[in-house]
Design a protein around this nucleic acid. Structure first.
Lengths: 205, 205
DNA sequence: TAGATTGTTAATCGATTAACAATC
DNA sequence: TAGATTGTTAATCGATTAACAATC
């Protein structure tokens, strides 16, 4: 059931969800496209348009019931469940990710941590015992894991991605500072702080 | 000299730069918009169009001299120099950032690390002695730092941003999972792994 | 020369915004 | 009722792509 909703719209939904969750934490129960837009620096028309792709979640004259809208967005994004995530790389960054408490209440749980260093395999990183990278295929297949995060050096990232995809991974969050080549149908997102910094320095002169 | 070059173009330049640097590391000296596009999953026309905003960097029939194009892009993005970056937050993530070796050769250097925890202030994180957050304004002003990374809990992020901006920071890379309210003219980029993961789960069903 | 690839123009495609009837 | 805000349509705006002359 291929949908024809623009990816750029999908990309904004998690941001809406995050802002709505924050509003709820602040004790608010109802909001409007105008208020949300002001918070996010987005036009209210865009927010209404984006949401309207998935249904009418608001009421004229009133706005949006925050709890209800959160529920609906979680459903649209399929994060009204818990996804197991495989983490490859237990260096500084991988370790920080393994300790991060912010995944749980937003739909994700790190299920296993891999590293290829003999010094690290078998040790504990947070609550996880580090597994050897040679176990990647087996573990991911057995547990049916579909999402992975790559936190290894750039030179190893493509190789790791290949193994992950072969094992059934369908979405990758890549922290290594390089582009991955993946088959059609595999989703990849990138996190590279330097890319984001360089995007800002252009304006600083 | 306000330029009218679309921000979306600026956003792609660091990605081009990263791929070109990789190509150079692989020993290649010349590339084409077609080759680069194939690597990045972008059309060759888009790459040529993007680059043409800043000048003619290639040669018909030949393509682009990689070393030269890298040099030009670094100049366009103002990363042909070293920017000092202030890091606020010395938890797991802040610590991983402080240890990260990947900033130096791409135009950035962490100059100072702040945290508000008395347990951390005065200790070493990597090569940095953690400074109290009460010193933020003073240090940033004295050293003329223009860029900061925020790696504190969401509840503290806005407050930290306010202090940073007041002290003269003009670009913020925010790792806290929340939107910041900043005055016009201040650039903000966000890194929230959960937002990126949620963007992919939409397609996994 | 023949083949390749750029830089650029014009056409196409898609996303954002403005506006407003519907209605709470 | 009067005021507010949605969902949606049509208009505008901007970005991407196709195509090709120029030229290495």
């Amino acid at each position: 059931m291929a949908s024809n909703i623009p990816d750029i719209v999908i990309g904004r939904l998690p941001v809406y969800l995050r802002a709505l969750t924050r509003l709820m934490q602040e004790g608010q129960e109802v909001t409007s496209s105008h208020e949300l837009g002001k918070r996010l620096g987005i036009s209210s028309a865009q927010i209404r348009k984006d949401l309207s792709h998935f249904g009418g979640f608001g009421k004229q004259g009133t706005g949006y019931q925050i709890a209800y809208l959160i529920e609906q967005l979680r459903q649209v994004l399929s994060v009204n469940r818990e996804w197991e995530v495989a983490l490859v790389g237990a260096g500084d960054l991988g370790s920080a990710l393994a300790h991060y408490r912010g995944f749980g209440d937003r739909g994700f749980r790190i299920a296993c941590v891999f590293d290829n260093s003999p010094q690290k395999v078998g040790t504990k990183v947070g609550e996880y015992t580090v597994l050897p990278t040679s176990d990647i295929a087996k573990v991911i297949r057995e547990r049916g894991i579909k999402i992975a995060m790559i936190a290894v050096p750039a030179e190893k990232a493509q190789e790791v991605a290949n193994v992950l995809i072969e094992a059934g991974i369908r979405a990758i969050l890549n922290y290594a500072p390089m582009n991955l080549n993946v088959p059609a149908g595999i989703r990849v997102q990138y996190i590279d702080p330097v890319v984001q910094l360089q995007r800002m320095t252009y304006y600083l002169t």
